[in-house]
Simulated scan of single mutants.
Amino acid sequence: MQYIERFIDGIDGSKARFIGYAIDNSPEIDMQRRRPAVLVIPGGGYAMTSDREAEPIALKFLSAGYQAFVLRYSVSPSRYPVALIEAAEAMRLIREHADEWHVDADHVATIGFSAGGHLAANLATSAGDDDLRAHGYDPDAVRPNALMLAYPVITSGEFAHRGSFDELLGPDHKADADRLEAVSIERHIDAVTPPVFVWHTMTDRTVPVENTLMLVQACKRAGVQVEAHLYPEGDHGLSLGTKESMWGGQDGVPCVQSWPQLAIDWLGRTFAA
């Protein structure tokens, strides 16, 4: 197995950390094998990137046969679109090194958690296209082929997680309706959006489930394939829902522990289509 580490220069002088786990090919099996890949984007309200939503998620997908990468993107005081450009560069790296890392460049998904879900969706939809072009990226060249989201920050409207947008846009953003609309994902889902898998809990007290419901409605209107799973209990930031991945070693939430296999099964079907 290859362990990969790169540093991505942020457009504001910050640095993002890009980590990868790539399964090597074997002469006993298939030396030409190219595996699908997943870019993991942890959450943290654009103020930090969660350990619990980084390597544990990458290793789960790695164990299912996916090459797995993690982006530790720049957070506050970095502002939009710093993290978006870093996510684009992470996707560019994966596809540029597809031969070296045994990746099928046409089957690269991203999975984002909470505010990391907002970043993943910003990259996957048309929301960030103008900003990507302004910084030298072809949006279609860095767009993932599938989008997976866990309790994502989606809307900047009534049901917004205000803390995420405060960190993303800075303290002076509240009076700028155009800036808020530009990063409200449900307003930017259209034909370029890849298939979507999303899960949320009905009792999330931090990022209301309405974020996911609005996402699903927007996907339906745009004709974007979407699979959604709503769980009856559990607060925000559950990661895998296991004791090992919970805040402070809290007890797990059994009802949500099905989501990783559901996501892996969905991704397999999506990439086989």
Rank of each mutant, 00 (worst) to 15 (best):
I8G: 03
I11L: 06
G20L: 08
A22E: 01
S26V: 05
E28R: 14
E28V: 11
I29C: 15
D30S: 12
D30F: 08
M31A: 12
R33W: 13
P36W: 08
P36V: 07
A37I: 00
A37F: 02
V38G: 10
L39V: 00
I41R: 04
G43D: 03
G44K: 06
G45P: 07
Y46N: 06
A54S: 12
E55Q: 07
A58W: 13
A58Y: 12
K60S: 13
K60D: 15
K60H: 11
F61R: 09
S63D: 15
G65D: 10
F69P: 10
L71H: 05
Y73V: 03
S74Y: 03
V75D: 04
V75K: 03
V82W: 04
A83W: 03
A83P: 00
L84P: 00
E86N: 05
E89C: 02
M91S: 12
E96S: 12
H97Y: 14
A98Q: 15
H102E: 14
A109L: 08
T110I: 07
F113A: 02
S114W: 00
S114P: 02
A115C: 00
G117E: 04
A120H: 02
A121S: 06
A121D: 04
A124Y: 05
S126W: 09
D129H: 08
D131E: 15
L132M: 10
Y137S: 06
D138R: 03
D138A: 08
P139E: 01
P139A: 04
A141V: 05
N145L: 05
A146N: 02
A150L: 07
V153C: 05
I154V: 12
E158N: 13
E158V: 07
F159D: 15
A160R: 15
R162E: 01
F165H: 06
D166W: 02
L168H: 03
L168K: 01
L168M: 08
D172L: 09
H173Y: 07
A175H: 11
D176L: 02
D176C: 09
A177D: 13
A177P: 00
A182F: 00
V183Y: 01
V183G: 09
V183H: 00
A191P: 12
P195A: 11
P195N: 02
V198G: 14
H200V: 10
T201V: 12
M202A: 14
D204Q: 10
R205G: 14
P208W: 09
N211K: 06
N211C: 09
N211L: 06
L213S: 05
M214L: 09
L215Y: 01
L215M: 00
V216M: 00
Q217M: 10
A218T: 01
A222S: 08
A222H: 08
G223K: 04
A228V: 06
P232A: 08
E233A: 15
D235C: 10
H236T: 14
G237V: 11
L238K: 14
S239I: 01
T242S: 11
T242N: 05
K243R: 14
M246A: 08
P254E: 06
C255L: 12
Q257R: 08
W259M: 07
W259Y: 09
A263I: 09
R269L: 04
R269C: 03
F271A: 06
